[in-house]
Simulated scan of single mutants.
Amino acid sequence: MSEREDEKRSAADVVKPGHGETGAQSTTEAALEAGGQNIPAGPVGGRRELEVIDVRRGMFGVHGSGDTSGFGGLVATVAMPPAAERPYGSWFDEVVDILVELLEADGVDPDSAIEKVVVDRGELTIFLAREHLRRVAQWLRDDQDLRFELCMGVSGVHFPADVDRELHAVYHLISLTHSRQLRLEVAVADADPHVPTIVDIYPGNDWHERETWDLMGIVFDGHPSLARTAMPDDWVGHPQRKDYPLGGIPVEYKGGTIPPPDTRRSYS
């Protein structure tokens, strides 16, 4: 056996239950340690104080019903990256400075509109208060020094443990003029899942906002036709939320009934 193959086998033995030398990590300990690899990146040679909001077990972190995904042993740390410090680098400072200037000219306190600016893995994300989303989106599209003409749509993300900020609407914008891309993110509470529509600013968002409402439950106020896209009109709930049960939902189709997956067999 080669030295390389011997190293690979030794590493595999560490995470096998009942294998390896005394004092080796258990499977759960190894998984918890590996979960730390999923946290946002920090600066080269430095450390960042990350906001750990949850430790998720399983593929979706489901509770209260059988985990039919087959990934029940996964453990992942869920952490939010902190606000970046100036200078952000690249063209990021220029864009943020222009937005601050426009907000001030409009009589808005930038600190109340921009919750934080995150630079992580070379990408710029601007967290906004929802009441300022529309004006910032308009400026990003129309200002001659910004010109983010294209919005690739909106995605919903659910962080059940992020108290009062459980639902995040994430917008990906591209500037064809300046060859740049950035991300806008708006966080709202589960109990008040309302975000203003930007369909009149970026018409291509029409279907994306409908889909995000359908599957995640974020309500886009002012949308011209907020209706289901994937689920039946009378469906209860939003199945891509992380607290949505995996299995346990009976399905009836053309008079035939399919039992919930977690009642058909046992899952360990």
Rank of each mutant, 00 (worst) to 15 (best):
V236A: 11
E209L: 04
V188D: 01
A230G: 02
D162Q: 10
D142T: 11
P239A: 06
D262W: 00
E3M: 06
T77R: 11
G222M: 01
G64A: 07
Q37E: 13
F71E: 14
G46W: 09
D6M: 11
T28K: 15
D192T: 10
D93P: 09
R48M: 14
V236M: 06
G66M: 02
D67R: 09
V95L: 13
E149D: 15
T177N: 09
D106T: 05
L103Q: 01
S90F: 12
K254S: 13
T197G: 03
L246F: 01
Y171W: 08
V251Q: 12
D190H: 12
E51Q: 14
L128M: 04
M231W: 08
T28Y: 10
R147M: 12
L133M: 07
H223W: 04
D120I: 12
T28Q: 14
T177D: 07
T27I: 07
L176W: 06
E166W: 00
P224L: 10
Q240M: 15
F127E: 15
A11I: 15
V195G: 06
D192E: 15
P250K: 05
D142C: 00
S268C: 08
G122I: 02
R264S: 11
E21L: 11
T68G: 01
E115D: 13
G61D: 07
D234G: 00
G89C: 05
I39F: 04
K116Y: 02
R210V: 05
L167E: 06
Q138W: 11
D120M: 13
R228E: 02
E115P: 02
P260D: 04
L176C: 12
F71H: 15
D109N: 14
S268M: 08
E166V: 06
Y171Q: 08
T28V: 13
R228H: 03
E123H: 15
P196K: 08
L167W: 01
D145K: 10
P43N: 05
G72V: 05
P260N: 04
S179G: 07
D93A: 11
A83Y: 10
P203N: 08
P250N: 04
D67E: 04
Y253W: 15
G247F: 05
L176A: 13
Q144H: 13
K242F: 02
D262N: 05
P250S: 06
M152I: 10
V55P: 04
A113M: 05
P259K: 09
F159T: 11
P224E: 09
A34C: 06
G61V: 01
V78Y: 01
T27S: 11
C151A: 13
F220D: 00
A161M: 09
R56L: 09
E185L: 13
A113Y: 05
A31T: 05
R147Y: 09
V95F: 09
P87E: 06
K116E: 12
L128A: 01
R241E: 01
R47C: 08
P196G: 03
L124I: 10
R56W: 01
K16W: 02
L140I: 02
I53H: 08
